[in-house]
Nucleic acid binder design. Structure first.
Lengths: 92, 92
DNA sequence: TAGATATTTAGAAAATCATCTAAATACCAG
DNA sequence: CTGGTATTTAGATGATTTTCTAAATATCTA
């Protein structure tokens, strides 16, 4: 069900940058927001979309909310692309 | 430059279905349109977006215009996803 | 409990996108 | 050249998306 949601989530450059940031380690919402020229509520909105697409997970630690990558959906998306590249010419 | 364009192109389910259809072989614009509950100009619009993203190529053959996959951009997209799955835990 | 910090939710405005109909372009056959 | 088929372009409309500000919620510390 979240296959389409994931593709839509990844279509936005801000969200792709968030995912790239999280590749180096978990970050709080505030730390993520500090990388963008954008108000915090806007970044929060992007995080919500990534979460709904199951591309990230969040956990609260006191006042902070930490975000981390969830790579299981990436596996599915990777497979989708792999089929185009791999099965080239095989017509099946 | 067309990296972002490609992600946006792929975000739409109609366009992903077009790409899947083309995996089995080249098709004319009309053949592609026949798979959708949508007017031909709408499908033509989707084809234009896929073409601008370099995900498909077109060639005219008489009255028909044939569309075919261009897998080189898929390679780039595949790599992007691969980095998330592969380098998991390596933090670099 | 009161004040400070971190984050999200709500609601509005502007931009972008998907779709439609009507018209234009390109090519073929007679 | 004329009529027919294939496809795209133009322009409009409604839906979705991104961003903003203001307000709400959650947690910490004194």
């Amino acid at each position: 069900m979240s296959f389409n949601e994931a593709f839509k989530a990844i279509a936005d450059p801000t969200r792709r940058k968030i995912l790239s940031l999280l590749r180096k380690g978990d970050l709080t919402a505030g730390e993520i927001a500090s990388h963008f020229d954008m108000q915090k509520p806007s970044v929060s909105h992007h995080l919500k979309i990534l979460k709904q697409a199951d591309l990230v997970q969040d956990r609260r630690d006191g006042q902070h909310i930490y975000y981390s990558l969830n790579t299981t959906v990436f596996q599915d998306l990777l497979s989708w692309f792999y089929d185009f590249v791999e099965k080239e010419g095989k017509k099946q």
